[in-house]
Simulated scan of single mutants.
Amino acid sequence: MRGFGVDDAKVAEIVEAYREDAPAMAPSDTLFAVCSEVQFRVPLAHVAEMKSATPGRARAWMVNLT
């Protein structure tokens, strides 16, 4: 996952959160969920945080549709 700018410790943290939230989830489903998280949600959250922190810019909102 380093290609996405996420280190192994963060990936392990994300995997553990998914396992705690959905213990019956198959390992392959966990893999797909983590890959989606790392590829899409994490970078978009970073962009939203940067935009919100920029003086004079409109706020950025994120919605989690799960």
Rank of each mutant, 00 (worst) to 15 (best):
M1K: 05
M1F: 15
R2F: 01
R2M: 07
G3V: 07
G5M: 01
V6M: 10
D7I: 14
A9V: 11
K10R: 12
V11H: 02
V11M: 04
V11C: 04
E13K: 02
E13A: 09
E13L: 04
I14C: 13
I14M: 15
I14H: 10
V15A: 11
V15S: 11
V15L: 14
E16F: 01
E20I: 08
D21M: 11
A22K: 02
P23C: 09
P23M: 05
A24Y: 00
A24H: 00
A24K: 01
M25E: 10
M25I: 08
M25R: 12
A26P: 09
P27M: 05
S28N: 03
D29F: 09
D29L: 11
T30W: 01
L31D: 15
L31Y: 15
L31R: 15
L31G: 12
F32G: 05
F32D: 13
V34L: 03
C35V: 15
C35F: 13
E37H: 09
V38C: 01
Q39F: 11
Q39K: 14
F40R: 02
R41M: 11
P43G: 05
L44K: 08
V47K: 05
V47T: 05
E49G: 13
K51Q: 13
S52P: 03
A53F: 04
A53E: 04
A53C: 03
P55W: 12
G56K: 06
R57F: 09
A58M: 08
A58P: 04
A58C: 05
A60M: 03
W61H: 11
W61T: 13
M62V: 07
M62D: 00
V63G: 14
V63I: 14
V63M: 14
L65Y: 15
T66M: 03
